[in-house]
């Protein structure tokens, strides 16, 4: 059955490494839903959190093919993990929308990070589902622009 999986990949922090990983996905026809990459506690190593779609066979192949890459030191499909995503968005269609938007933001413990004449800029960190419903609730007030980081995740001990 096709489902979304969160994969954590440790790679050498070097030029072209991202290209090697994404190149593998594209040439083997694996679909990336989101990809997030940054340095770790070890400056030589970056961690990628990739959300990919595929059935059991595809996931098995994907993990094995990733492990064959020279720059990849660790690949894990996360089962029990803390998954978080960060979003920044501009919402509002005039001064009248300000109050209800702030109300929703407070309910989600989102922060108002900028105030303009007709819009607010909000930021929120949470599980992807929470981010989805946050966006959904704000739709009626005019979502002008938004950026999501994609999931970053760590397995629980």
């Amino acid at each position: 059955m096709t489902e979304r999986n969160v994969i954590s990949v440790c790679v050498n922090n070097g030029i072209g490494v991202l290209g090697r990983v994404t190149g593998l996905f594209s040439r083997r026809g694996y679909n990336i839903i989101s990809l997030n990459v940054a340095e770790t506690e070890n400056l030589g190593i970056s961690r990628m959190t990739i959300v990919a779609e595929g059935d059991e066979g595809v996931m098995e192949q994907l993990v094995k093919q990733l492990r064959k890459l020279y720059d990849v030191s660790e690949v894990k499909v996360l089962r029990d993990a803390v998954c978080r995503e960060h979003i920044i968005m501009k919402v509002g269609n005039g001064p009248a929308s300000r109050q209800p938007v702030i109300e929703i933001a407070n309910l989600f413990r989102a922060k108002v990070v900028n105030v303009a004449e007709s819009r607010l800029m909000l930021e929120l960190t949470g599980e992807p589902e929470k981010i989805d419903s946050f966006i959904g609730l704000l739709q009626p007030y005019g979502v002008k622009e938004l950026v999501r980081t994609g999931i970053s995740a760590l397995e629980r001990d």
Binding site: G16, G19, R20, G23, L24, R27, L69, Y70
Partner: peptide
């Protein structure tokens, strides 16, 4: 050439 040969080399 490293970009070109990425998918056809082990590394």
């Amino acid at each position: 050439i490293t970009g070109i040969t990425m998918p056809i080399t082990k590394h």
